[in-house]
Design a protein around this nucleic acid. Structure first.
Length: 695
DNA sequence: CAGTGAGCGAGCTTCCGCTTGACTT
């Protein structure tokens, strides 16, 4: 029996099923070796030679692999077809001392019988260049992270961290906050005309002022923000009085229909899900955090017991950057569409999507149902409500991706006014732009399109061209330009991904890290930087700009590709990054220690009457007396930034010891009942009061 | 995740990327 090694136990099961009796399949559970956590683990003097240690969790699996290794003529390393997968395979051969002539590398993009069998027909040797590209990536990240973090411990506070990915994530949030602060909102007016045409009583049409003579009234402004180009459209009417005068002039004109244009429009379905897109949609439509989405997706991937049958994996792998779909799955999806909806709902040709993600490694398929015939409703009773909702999203999105386009009829009506008394223009064009759905296509299934601003109108009335219309009324609608929105978890991930920063397996953890370090806070699901975040970001931008540059990762990836292609040694890539890093470190080594300025609050110290300060400590913000160290008073702050109210006596008695119960508040600001005999009696009970539930 | 929970407030911290359970925040 030959041995096949993969990295995921679920992949192990699927492959074992496909390969049958002749192969023994085992999984590594991810990486098995890494640099040590407690020290640098890289010998910079000796060409960056790494010190690898076996991960604790891998000890057992390695011991087992060693046992079953003997007398295997061939060992197939079937880890993912990407940089990390190649490295895992290499570490396995190193740790298990597998001889080169024994080790065969096989790769595939989909876990289907034809793909796996084809892979076994074409085994190859380990690609040491690709392994070296991974080593360069790993060592570079270690050097950046483990050199910058201690610098921050010395200059700001212990326990802080910095890194190629997290520090850019924080910077995005900081820069956005500046962009919002500097944005000057502008009031502007849109002028609406209500026109009547046809036989009395007539039909009504509502159109917006579009042009005065040849000049359009709307214009677009574009802001070059840190990570994105921000565009806003507004009209040139900003003065309320002038708008009122304009309306007076407009109402003196004679109006007629100058253009009626009808043309077809269409919209294509979105591609099947990749990790980041699933996280975004689950946040938008289901209000799941990326972390939650990944945890539920993991359950769907690992498998659910559907009745008496054994566990069955409902979706393909959920950490992917590829929109590729197995031909078999496309075929069964298309058959399902034709059967359930009719062949008119099928796209004319098979839709092939292109992966747009920068630096995508495309080791897996898109996220899709493993069997489209398991429609969400039919298995609903076996799923938790959350599993059901996420599965439904994935299933629907996949099927929609092979469905026909939605088609529309677009209508543009222009009404021109002339013969005005007063005003410095001779014609004014009002315009109505509407569309009606002709054929739903994929939108029959993918109903999210409506929420994406795809508003359909009922039948729009069509006046005849050149017919006269009467102006019934004009009005000015006031609008204000909006600053760019703060990031939420999903949009932050989207932006990082657009710049090739982070990987599907790290998107959710990145968010957790920057919150854990207290660089940023989530309030009402929006990110804001903390004072600490602002301070650390300032230091990094000032002294280590090249690291927190949006292009840093992109440049690194380009170099790593050259390593993978054998065009340059991996040590050169590391050296070229480490040199400026060390120079910056030595230049910044004598900068003054920075402090997060404590905020003076309006509250007074109950002990000595001095003002209280809001300070950041190891466990978050707390209130401290400004007379420290003479007065050592401190108080906790709950998660909404307020000190908790003092405990309150209630009329209720403790069911355990009979002492009166106190109403207290926990660290989140939530009230609960606790025994006043604490710590002798530790009874507590939740208050099931709607008032205390902030969500 | 669900449900806990009450204080602590300058000493051994930290990176990114693969993978799952463990388990008390």
């Amino acid at each position: 029996m030959n041995l096949v090694i993969v990295e995921s136990p679920t992949k192990q099961k699927s492959i074992a099923k496909i390969l049958g009796q002749d192969y023994l399949v085992r999984s590594t559970y991810g990486h098995i070796r890494d640099l040590p956590t407690s020290r640098l683990g890289v010998n910079v003097e000796d060409n960056f030679s790494p010190e690898y240690v076996v991960l604790g969790r891998a000890k057992k699996i390695i011991a087992e692999l060693k046992k079953i290794l003997a007398d295997r003529p061939k060992i197939y390393l079937a880890t993912d077809y990407d940089r990390e997968g190649e490295a895992i395979a290499w570490h396995v051969t190193e740790v298990l001392k597998i001889k080169p002539e024994q080790a065969w590398r096989i790769t595939f993009h989909e876990i289907t019988p034809p793909a796996i069998k084809a892979a076994l027909q074409n085994p190859r040797k380990l690609d040491i260049n690709l392994v070296n590209a991974q080593q360069a990536r790993r060592i570079l990240d270690r050097l950046v992270g483990y050199r910058l973090s201690p610098f921050l411990w010395r200059k700001v506070r212990r326990g802080l961290s910095a890194g190629r990915v997290q520090s850019v994530a924080v910077r995005l949030i900081v820069e956005r906050e500046k962009e919002i602060a500097e944005f000057v909102p502008q009031d502007y007016y849109q002028i609406i005309g209500n026109f009547v045409f046809g036989q009395v009583p007539g039909q009504k049409i509502r159109a917006t002022l579009y042009r005065l003579d040849e000049e359009k009234v709307e214009f677009q402004q574009s802001f070059n923000f840190f990570a994105t180009e921000y565009k806003i459209t507004q009209t040139k009417f900003t003065d309320e009085k002038k708008v009122a005068e304009l309306i007076k002039i407009l109402s003196t004109g004679n109006y007629s229909v100058s253009k009626v244009e009808e043309k077809p429009g269409k919209r294509n379905p979105p591609p099947p899900y990749i990790t980041s897109q699933l996280q975004q949609d689950a946040a938008r439509y289901l209000h799941f955090s990326p972390k939650r989405t990944m945890s539920i997706a993991q359950q769907l991937y690992e498998g659910i017991s559907l009745g008496p049958q054994e566990q069955v994996g409902l979706i393909t792998y959920h950490r992917t950057d590829s929109v590729y779909v197995s031909p078999l799955a496309i075929e069964s999806g298309r058959r399902y569409i034709a059967e359930k909806f009719g062949s008119q709902y099928l796209s004319e040709n098979i839709r092939h999507y292109r992966t747009r993600v920068k630096g995508a490694q495309e080791a897996h398929e898109a996220i899709r149902p493993t069997d489209v015939r398991r429609d969400p409703e039919s298995i609903k009773k076996y799923l938790t409500p959350e599993q059901f909702k996420l599965y439904q999203l994935i299933w629907t999105r996949f099927l929609a991706s092979q469905m026909a386009s939605a088609t529309y009829q677009q209508l543009i009506v222009e009404i021109t006014g002339r013969d005005f008394s007063g005003g410095d223009f001779s014609s004014a064009v009002f315009r109505l732009h509407g569309q009606t759905l002709v054929f739903a296509g994929f939108r029959r299934l993918w109903t999210m399109a409506e929420e994406e601003g795809e508003k359909d109108q009922a039948e729009i009335v069509r006046p005849a061209e050149n017919s006269r219309v009467s102006a019934e009324s004009f009005l000015a609608e006031k609008h204000t330009t909006n600053p760019p929105p703060r990031y939420n978890e999903a949009s932050l991930i989207k932006t990082l991904e657009e710049h090739g920063i982070g990987r599907p397996s790290t998107y959710a953890p990145i968010v957790s890290t920057i919150i854990l370090r207290r660089y940023v806070q989530l309030a009402e699901r929006k990110f804001r930087p903390t004072k600490l975040g602002l301070l650390v970001n300032d230091i990094l931008v000032k002294h280590f700009n090249f690291v927190v540059d949006l292009q840093f990762t992109a440049r690194m990836e380009k170099e790593l590709d050259e390593v993978a292609d054998g065009k340059q040694p991996w040590t050169r890539v590391v050296r070229e990054t480490v040199q400026p890093l060390e120079e910056s470190l030595s230049q910044a080594k004598d900068i003054a220690r920075q402090k997060v300025t404590a905020e003076v609050t309006t509250a007074r110290c109950p002990k000595c009457g001095a003002p209280l300060l809001r300070k950041e400590g190891r466990w978050g913000e707390f209130l401290a007396c400004s007379a420290y160290p003479e007065c050592r008073y401190t108080a906790r702050i709950n998660s909404s930034g307020q000190p908790n109210p003092a405990p309150e006596m209630t009329a209720e008695k403790c069911p355990k010891c009979g002492a009166p119960l106190l109403k207290r508040h926990n660290w989140r600001g939530r009230a609960f009942l606790a025994c006043s005999a604490y710590p002798d009696c530790r009874y507590t009970r939740s208050i099931k009061d709607a008032q205390d539930k902030l969500s």
